[in-house]
Amino acid sequence: MAVLDIKDVSKVFSTTVAVDRFNLTVGDGELVCLLGPSGSGKSTLLRMVGGFETPSAGVVAIDGEDVTRVPPEKRPTGMVFQSHALWTHMNVFKNLAFGLKLRRLPADEIKRRVDAVLELVGLGGFGHRATNQLSGGQQQRVALARSLVLEPKILLLDEPFASLDQHLRERLREEVRDIQQRLGITTLFVTHGQDEALSMADRIVVMRDGKIEQVAPPDFLYRQPQTPFVASFIGTMNLIEGVVSGGQFSRPGLKLPLPIADGPATVAVRPEALAIVKSGEPDSARIHRITDYGAHAIVDLELPDGFRLKATVPDAREWSGVQAATLAPRAFAAYRENVVAYRS
């Protein structure tokens, strides 16, 4: 059963289309990531689910009920903001209790629920603290607790870890995922970091210019990107433009059999799928630099026309002193007009 149903939703600001005919259904207990560069409309979409923006067109339904024009205070959603947005004039307990008080719950019930949620986010006993006495990670946990304490049907997270440092971000990522799975709460998560999306999401929605590029589980997204944009946005990808003629893709320095109709095409190869062979031919790729990461090494290659590629090799030492190499992709995909035309 779909908890969240977004149908043909568009949002137009005075001059720009932020979200363009967007469709998505989110199932019960699912964690869906909205992933995209800034300006791709992901935050706007999240805010429309939360009720902070009204769609220009389309319908947002929660549990089958149309909430498109319902104000945020009447929606069963809980939002965690990027800057945590804690109320600095209230202590931690009051921040959490505010929403419960508005619902006129008895005081002992409020206390019980607040304490339980603080325990859940690992901040048991922090109720009396002022918000500015907390570290960045603790503040974000309080913000999460503030949303969870109301037991919303849908949890909305708007780049909640963006202001934290790398180490803390990774830890909180796991904690949030654990809590989400323990509570089985339906979650919509906005991020521009692919690591975050890949490590947390059940499904990822890649957005670009207000439109969906691809919706897929993380592993699928990495292995079978449907568009060159997705291919380049998730992980590292060599996107090589060239021409197909007579079943052969060609570009100076690279020739590949590609059984599609004649015309321009883009070949996408992951560095780890791009095998290279030492070569003395003048028309091969020149080795520009080798970066040794110990467990593997990245070779930067330059095609005769100046185009740069990356390839992964197991051992840097084998390549010291080598000037040129020929390219032999083990697996690749080809795109034409923004869709997959061939996958090996």
Partner: peptide
């Protein structure tokens, strides 16, 4: 911070209540 106000709307406060609290 607008998001402070939005967070209050989110937990169920009416616009008037947000202004006051």
């Amino acid at each position: 911070d607008r998001r402070m106000e939005e967070a209050a709307r989110d937990v169920g406060a009416s616009p008037a209540r947000v202004f006051w609290s």
